[in-house]
């Protein structure tokens, strides 16, 4: 007799977005089933993992980072190491030092670094701005110009600066653009529509719906991602069919569990263990909710989450 399976294969599917050029380009999205439900129908493009490399360096004093980046004195050297990290599908270069609070590095310097990194690494490159909306408007436009032909992904266009960021990235220089909104399906759709109206094809777009560490309002992230996925698949909503990318490490390595010192919380055990578990747990939860790509940083997290994806898809 047995169990009668009723697979949920949807008529709508998530857009497939290509990042990178040449042999090592990757594709995210494309599936027509719920996240990781490869038993309903094959998932051609497994979820991908990006490794974040900040131009301000890695978190010092954590043995796993120190060992992995030991001797890598420049951002370029760090990027080369990350390029070879087991489980890494793409590199996320974060231009944090361009933020006025972090040294206000000039646009020219940042652009030079981006070009250097792209030519030095094999895996596709994603460039994230400084998270200062005004600065990013100028910065990411120049990054897009200087990297034409590399088909990079640029993070992120916001409601406030999408006209300069998205237009330059995807319209003029033919890169991919990530639209970032604040944990709300309606805001996400609205921004996608605005960017689409500029004439940008939705196949060049991904979404960042927001991020949080487990325990820190993660229910909003999970439910927003799930609702967006369901609307894309079951209602075939063209303005929500972009793949979802979720930065994880930037959130998880900033919460108390990952930074409180071992002296202050002796019963909590190793700080590194806490940080890695927080990163792994949040990443797994994001993937279960529906992220097509997550951005991580610790080598153990990248390895574990990549293995988990491999076991499921």
């Amino acid at each position: 007799m047995g169990f009668k399976r009723e697979p949920q294969v949807f008529s709508g599917s998530i857009n497939a977005v290509e990042i990178g050029a040449g042999e090592n380009k990757i594709t995210i999205g494309g599936e027509n089933v719920l996240p990781l439900y490869s038993f309903d129908a094959p998932i051609e493009n497994r979820p991908k993992i990006g490794v974040a490399v900040s131009d301000m360096g890695y978190i010092k004093g954590i043995p796993g980072f120190d060992a992995f980046y030991n001797g890598a004195d420049t951002v370029l050297e760090m990027a080369k190491r990350a390029d070879a990290m087991p489980g890494a599908d793409f590199l996320v270069l974060c231009l944090d030092s361009a933020h006025p609070n972090n040294g206000d590095k000039s646009v020219e310097e940042c652009v030079a670094l981006v070009k250097e990194v792209i030519s030095a690494v094999d895996i596709p490159v994603v460039v994230e701005g400084s998270r200062h909306l005004e600065k990013d408007g100028k910065l990411l436009e120049k990054v897009a110009e200087a990297t034409q032909g590399n088909n990079i992904l640029i993070l992120s266009a916001h409601e406030e600066n999408y006209k300069s960021v998205a237009a330059a990235a995807a319209l003029v220089y033919d890169h991919n653009i990530s639209a970032e909104s604040a944990v709300d399906i309606n805001l996400a759709k609205q921004l996608n529509v605005l960017i689409n109206v500029l004439g940008i094809k939705s196949e060049k777009m991904v979404m960042n719906l927001g991020s949080a560490a487990g325990g820190y309002g993660f229910e909003y992230i999970a439910s927003t991602i799930e609702r967006v996925k369901l609307a894309a698949l079951s209602q075939n909503d063209a303005m929500l069919k972009m793949p979802i990318i979720t930065p994880v490490s930037s959130e998880t390595w900033a919460v108390k569990e990952s930074i409180a010192s071992e002296e202050d919380y002796p019963e909590w055990g190793s700080l590194e263990e806490r940080g890695v578990n927080m990163e792994i747990s949040t990443a797994a939860a994001c993937l279960a909710a529906g992220s097509n790509a997550v951005i991580l940083s610790h080598p153990e997290s990248v390895k574990t989450v990549s293995e988990m994806i491999g076991l499921l898809v």
Binding site: L36, A213, G215, T252, W268, R274, M278, I280, L287
Partner: peptide, 27 residues
């Protein structure tokens, strides 16, 4: 974490250290 989101009612582990507990219980 995966089974916390998707439909595990009882999740059995080999151990539950503090570094594992903090994210899992928060999630």
């Amino acid at each position: 974490s995966l089974f916390t989101l998707k439909y595990g009612s009882i999740i059995i582990m080999e151990e539950m250290t503090f570094p594992q507990a903090l994210p899992l219980y928060g999630l």
